[in-house]
């Protein structure tokens, strides 16, 4: 596609974009970096290396990993069902999948806490039947993060499944493949890159998630305290340096993930030949 030199408004549009981007995003974000420079390397390692901080990273990353994995499995099933089958109410269920995008995290947080607390609808059932307590345990965090992750997985997979060239399945069938073989050898390899992207997307969102987690987590240091909460706690106790160091670490990890996701998407595009 050719870009025209005669289109009006380049300078004002780009100028406004750059100024606004700098004021709202770049300058505030860089504060975090500059503030961290006031810390010595030893200070930084002392803060990040403290047991409570390490534990919170373990909780955050561990639960995000498990949640993303579970959400991926269910996400594949949901996306498959939504794209391939027709049944009563499909449009309704498909629309409601975006609820976690639209529902404020605080609301999700108190509702999930209410459902899964030991006296809640599901919490009581799980505790009485299986002896599993969800709320105020790391498992609660996982539940909240699954909630957050569902739309990422489903919305990443649906278009891929929709565009999937079904004549490939017919070709495989004409060569005598069974349904299971077709799924594992033809369909799955084709949606795998998208699934990986979906996994990475939901993982990176989950690691930073705050609102929907803190109500159900119990927030016990070393056990169910997530990194974002620890940052808030440090800030409230006026440990600005501690908050800064942890926040910077989180930020860098997020950027690493952003980079990874971009690579993955590039790979997906290349594989599907859309580059």
């Amino acid at each position: 596609m050719s870009q025209s030199q005669i289109m009006p408004g380049f300078r004002p549009a780009l100028g406004f974009t750059l100024v606004y981007l700098s004021l709202i995003v770049l300058i505030p974000l860089s504060t975090l970096v500059f503030k961290s420079f006031q810390l010595s390397w030893d200070d930084y390692l002392r803060i990040i290396g403290s047991k409570r901080v390490l534990a919170s990273f373990r909780v955050s990353f561990g639960s995000a990993l498990i949640a993303a994995a579970i959400a991926s499995v269910f996400g594949v099933i949901v996306a498959w069902v939504m794209v391939r089958y027709s049944f009563f109410g499909r449009k309704f269920f498909d629309a409601i999948i975006d609820l976690p995008f639209a529902l404020p995290t605080a609301v999700a947080g108190i509702v999930l806490a209410t459902i899964f607390q030991p006296t809640g609808v599901l919490g009581k059932f799980l505790l009485d039947t299986f002896g599993i307590q969800v709320a105020f345990k790391p498992l609660g965090i996982v539940i909240a993060l699954i909630f957050i992750s569902i739309p990422f997985v489903v919305r990443t997979l649906e278009p891929v499944l929709l565009e999937f060239d079904t004549t490939m399945e017919e070709a495989a069938a004409s060569m005598g493949a069974s349904r299971w073989q077709i799924f594992t050898k033809v369909i799955f390899p084709n949606i795998f890159p998208a699934l990986l992207t979906a996994f990475a997307l939901s993982f990176s969102r989950s690691v930073g998630e705050y609102g929907s987690v803190i109500f159900i987590a119990g927030n016990l240091p070393f056990v169910s305290e997530i990194v974002p909460l620890l940052i808030v706690t440090k800030l409230e106790q006026y440990e600005i340096e501690g908050a800064t160091a942890i926040a910077l670490t989180m930020l860098l990890i997020s950027f690493l993930f952003l980079f990874l996701i971009n690579l993955l998407q590039l790979w997906t595009h290349k594989r599907s030949g859309q580059l």
């Binding site: 974009t17 750059l18 981007l21 995003v25 770049l26 300058i27 505030p28 974000l29 504060t31 975090l32 503030k35 995290t105 990176s204 690691v207 930073g208 998630e209 705050y210 609102g211 990194v227 974002p228 909460l229 940052i231 808030v232 800030l235 600005i240 908050a243 800064t244 926040a247 989180m250 930020l251 997020s254 950027f255 993930f257 952003l258 971009n262």
Partner: peptide
């Protein structure tokens, strides 16, 4: 690069999005 920078806020934890303004104006 500009396109990537525009998407940046999506990959920043909401808590950090608050912290940076406290660091600037607190």
């Amino acid at each position: 690069l500009l396109t990537t920078l525009i998407d940046l806020p999506f990959s920043v934890s909401p808590v950090i999005s608050g912290v940076i303004f406290v660091l600037l104006f607190g």
